[in-house]
Design a protein around this nucleic acid. Sequence first.
DNA 1: AGATTGACAGACCAACTGGTTTGTTATTAA
DNA 2: TTAATAACAAACCAGTTGGTCTGTCAATCT
Lengths: 202, 202
Amino acid sequence: MSAIALRNPDLTRQRILDVAFEEVLLKGYQGLRVDQVLKVTGLTKGAFYHHFASKQALGHAVIDEVLKPWIIEKWVEPLKDFTDAPNDLIQFLDQARQELDTNELHTGCPLNNLTQEMSPLDESFRLRIASIWQLWHNALSDAFARGQKNGTVRKDLNANSIARFLIAAMEGIIGQCKCFKDEKTFDEAGECLRDYIESLSA
Amino acid sequence: MSAIALRNPDLTRQRILDVAFEEVLLKGYQGLRVDQVLKVTGLTKGAFYHHFASKQALGHAVIDEVLKPWIIEKWVEPLKDFTDAPNDLIQFLDQARQELDTNELHTGCPLNNLTQEMSPLDESFRLRIASIWQLWHNALSDAFARGQKNGTVRKDLNANSIARFLIAAMEGIIGQCKCFKDEKTFDEAGECLRDYIESLSA
DNA sequence: AGATTGACAGACCAACTGGTTTGTTATTAA
DNA sequence: TTAATAACAAACCAGTTGGTCTGTCAATCT
């Protein structure tokens, strides 16, 4: 009984998921190759199809077990602490901007990438992805609704619509940067986004 | 010499381009199958590879000869007539919204779709696509700069940044709707976009 | 009219790809 | 200890896919 067992099924499965997530981020789901995942993990077909019934099942697992928790941790949970939505959001985005390296700017948002590629192609993907967007939207909408109650957010606004627009704008900006690889595009548009968010304060 | 020649190379080539454009819109470039284009057009491999050197060459031609002219006609040329950028843009978007059917809402913006999928994968695609974005950006930026000169647009703004942000926001909104198929998402975010554009007037 | 060439048709191919099958070994329950 | 099973390894397979090759026929040029 060694410290690190030769056979560690949970770890094996997780390695497949992590590598697959990276591959999808780079090539998209359609560009994801099972063989490539095996090459990177050093596993074989037997191992893969022991853990996953199909490539589609892997895709589902990547969404449910990698992408979703990642979004919740990075973009949903933090919003629950917002008390002054506009100012807290600006501060939050500033910090996210600093943690962003040029490489990430090139690959874009994994959630949006999958959305654009897969939602028209596979309903089972679309529904899973939509549930993640909804989590984010709800958290952001709630933050602004709280702000309206405590007087930090203008009461003439619709928190629901604001959340929809903000998410769209943020993803739009990230999406633009996939093509213009420089960070200038990001910061120019980000400047306007900041102005807009500031205009929401009461 | 019949009225419609049996062999009409220009028409044949154009049919391939049109069908390929539709297929890319539905499945993406990676999901585009040469065989599917042949099936729809009723042509054969011989015909296809007579007109295009490769699948990649077809992709390039679709961008240069279908997508680019379409964007120029629909989203670049009209902006040149703007005299009061914010109000003209709102009116322009309202009209575009009315012409939009649910089907288009599901497929998204062809330019943005290709951007998200291909710009990290193929530099030759990225450069072609970037040149189209640039055309749109310049037209929009110029419209706002003109507005600043003639007093319809606030002078404290950066026309360049505004154009970047607006394009990002518009594409972001369209992108969100690919996942939430209903038009409600579109109109909620659109409402905020309208408010923002109005806030740019002098 | 005859030769040349452009515009296809369609059989063919090699590489790739997701998936299956059979076999082997480590782990675990009885 | 041993039987059962989970966790793989690896050869194999069939369908797909982009691309090639040879041939045919119509248009054009001389």
